[in-house]
Design a protein around this nucleic acid. Structure first.
Length: 287
DNA sequence: GGCCAGGTGTACC
DNA sequence: GGTACACATGGC
């Protein structure tokens, strides 16, 4: 029997396939993916979310947590500054939620993300999981899905074999991160008890992890609303929507992201990211 | 073939 | 302090 969860606003496609996580795919109108060691197939029906699993789903608290279903989106949106860009961005996709991912999977995935398109990140993650992930129970008759490879497993893999997963120059960075986590030099669970700034400092101590990737991990895994990842898309959104015909310095933009968007700035960032990628076509937009 | 992609590290001024 | 470029790889 699938788990049935009454759901508030939830846009599954925008949430699962919007550049936060890289393992979800849509099959016959349902979203299939892996959360920790569980394979799951998600579908919306009426006002409910239906979750089909291969093992006992329990009360589904793990799924509610992952999807951020306890976030009160209406209350969050009310904390946003009342400006046209954010109004439009929220209006365009009112069910977009921030995920709460496993920190290691999130860190590893975003280490792969630098100067790659989202479809290519998805491809790399799939290759990594196929090569190094542990098989887990899946739907009957299909090949076993796999968990995301642990840091301990990847710490033993040669850089050359990581490059086989098309990681390019990022292979060295992933290997270093896996070794740091496996050896305990970086304690991802302990970051939960640190301030955002202190946690960011720990993350950016890894080679290949700068402020952008660290902020993605802080936001998409730890739910830190004071983390505001600025990538090429968000930069474009800030410039076009908030500083048109001006040439703001990076320092100005950073100050703006830290002060303008309020206590749920991380959520605001995700709405802007989704909006600029999907609802404001430009010549350089991907089709 | 040139440009771009959910960037970062390094070498310069 | 800032700015330019290399770094692998694939899509368009």
């Amino acid at each position: 029997m699938p788990l049935r969860i009454p759901t508030p606003f939830l846009d599954l496609e925008a949430t699962l396939d919007g550049g936060q996580a890289f393992r979800w795919r849509c099959v016959d109108g349902a979203w299939e993916g892996v959360i920790g060691d569980r394979w799951v197939r998600l579908r919306q029906e009426g006002g409910d979310l239906l979750a089909e699993t291969a093992t006992d789903p329990g009360d589904g608290a793990w799924l509610r947590h992952y999807l951020g279903l306890d976030d009160d989106l209406e209350a969050i949106v009310r904390t946003f500054p009342d400006d046209p860009p954010l109004r439009d961005a929220v209006q365009a996709c009112p069910g977009l939620r921030l995920l709460r991912q496993d920190p290691w999977e999130c860190l590893a995935s975003f280490i792969l993300s630098s100067t790659k398109q989202i479809v290519q990140i998805q491809q790399c993650v799939a290759l990594l999981c196929d090569a190094f992930g542990e098989p887990i129970p899946g739907p009957a008759g299909a090949t076993s899905p796999r968990a995301f490879p642990t840091a301990a497993r990847l710490a033993l893999v040669t850089e050359s074999r990581l490059r086989d997963c098309k990681l390019g120059f990022r292979a060295r960075y992933l290997a270093a991160a896996a070794q740091a986590v496996d050896a305990g030099r970086l304690d991802l669970e302990a970051l939960r008890g640190l301030s955002t700034a202190a946690a960011r400092e720990q993350l950016t101590g890894l080679p290949g992890v700068g402020p952008k990737i660290a902020n993605c991990v802080l936001l998409f895994a730890y739910g830190r609303q004071d983390a505001f990842p600025v990538d090429v898309w968000v930069l474009r959104a800030l410039r076009e929507l908030y500083f048109p015909r001006r040439r703001p310095k990076p320092r100005t933009l950073q100050r703006f992201t830290e002060t303008h968007f309020g206590p749920n700035a991380g959520y605001a960032q995700q709405y802007l990211f989704h909006y600029i990628r999907n609802h404001r076509p430009t010549e350089t937009r991907l089709s």
